[in-house]
Amino acid sequence: MVGQLLFCAAGIYLFFLTWGVLQERISTLDYVSVIDGSHGRFRFFLVLNLIQSIACVFVAYSVLRLQRRTLGPCSPSVLKQYARVALTGCLGSPFGYEALRHINYPTMILGKSCKLIPVMLMNFVVYRRKFEWYKYVSVAMITAGVSGFMLFEKEGGRGGANSLYGLLLLLINLMVDGATNSWQDKMFIDHRLYGPQMMFFMHLFSSIFLFLYLLLNPWNHEFSAALAFARNYPTVRGDVALFGLCGALGQVFVFYTLEHFGSLSLVTITVTRKLFTILLSLLWFQHRMRLSQWLCVGVVFLALVLESFYKRLVRDHQKTLKT
């Protein structure tokens, strides 16, 4: 089980680190027009999300075909649950983007670092799910360690004030994400789903919601503008296609982790990913870290080791009782 979890973490890190590089390239590169040689930047992020969702649908379906599995339960009640999860997944991001207009970036990063707490809270509030004591200790230590690391990294360059409205939007973003994760957990348990099945239907509904919004919203012309941009700047097509593919392959590992280990383990991986990315960058380019940051890294590693140790201890104890 530990080996599987490490494999999932490696897949998520690999594909989403590449995905992040491509996202930055698409949003910051000055593409050159084949028509008049002018420069332009891709600013159509809802269309980018739509392409990502469509890529996830095709990749999930391909994985199911390779595994010779069906799409799973498709009754109206199950489809309604898929639609609910997809809708909350779509709604979470706009709150985060809007929050960033009213709070500074370090506050956003610190809030995202505490994502483990609302995920655990929503599991308890909505489904009365309880966790082992070492899970609570591990979550507290990881949250404190990652938050402290980000805080010490960003200090001195904070810029901008934080409004109460922005903090409220950030809280809504975290709670919506927590609700999405807990609903996914419940669907896996209730319907015995496989990861690609959840991935297929969730992104199918997400694609429908995003497409309808872009097509029917009279105040939003992003879809037609993105098509025009792709015609004038054809280089962007390859970047966007690769972006969608890397995101979709990363999602395979995400939903496999959800299926086998639950949302709390998944969020632990995604929350620590940024810390390990920054740590790798610091070591690779031989930058210096403050002693306080090293202490925070130590807290996170200690939390992960303690959780792994006690999880194995509990599993060995249960095996002993069965024999």
Rank of each mutant, 00 (worst) to 15 (best):
Y165R: 03
P118D: 12
N104K: 00
V176F: 10
L151I: 01
P94T: 03
L171W: 09
G72D: 10
Q81Y: 07
L193I: 09
F211Q: 01
V125R: 06
F200I: 01
L91D: 11
G72K: 00
E155N: 02
P73Y: 13
R192I: 08
K135I: 07
K186T: 15
K80E: 15
I109C: 04
G157M: 02
Y82I: 04
I117P: 08
G178C: 14
L167R: 03
M141R: 05
W133F: 01
L215R: 11
K115T: 00
L214E: 00
D177V: 04
E132D: 15
C74T: 11
E153G: 11
S206E: 09
Q81W: 13
G157F: 04
I172K: 10
M150W: 04
N173C: 15
S147K: 01
H203V: 06
Y97N: 06
Y134L: 01
G72M: 11
L116A: 03
V139W: 05
L100Y: 02
Y136D: 04
L193T: 03
Y165P: 06
A86Y: 07
I109K: 04
R128N: 14
I208F: 11
K130V: 15
K130G: 15
L170K: 01
Y134P: 00
L170D: 08
S113A: 08
S163Q: 14
K115A: 03
H102L: 08
I208T: 08
V85G: 12
R101D: 02
V78Q: 05
S77Y: 06
G178I: 03
D177G: 10
G156M: 05
L164C: 09
L168Y: 12
E132C: 06
G96V: 10
L214N: 02
A179E: 12
L167A: 09
K115V: 01
C74Y: 08
P118F: 03
K154M: 01
P94K: 02
Q81C: 10
L216D: 02
M199P: 10
I117N: 02
H203S: 12
F211T: 00
D185L: 09
V146G: 00
Y127Q: 14
F201M: 07
N123T: 01
R192W: 13
G195M: 03
A86V: 13
S207K: 05
L212C: 05
V78W: 12
K135C: 11
W183K: 14
S93D: 03
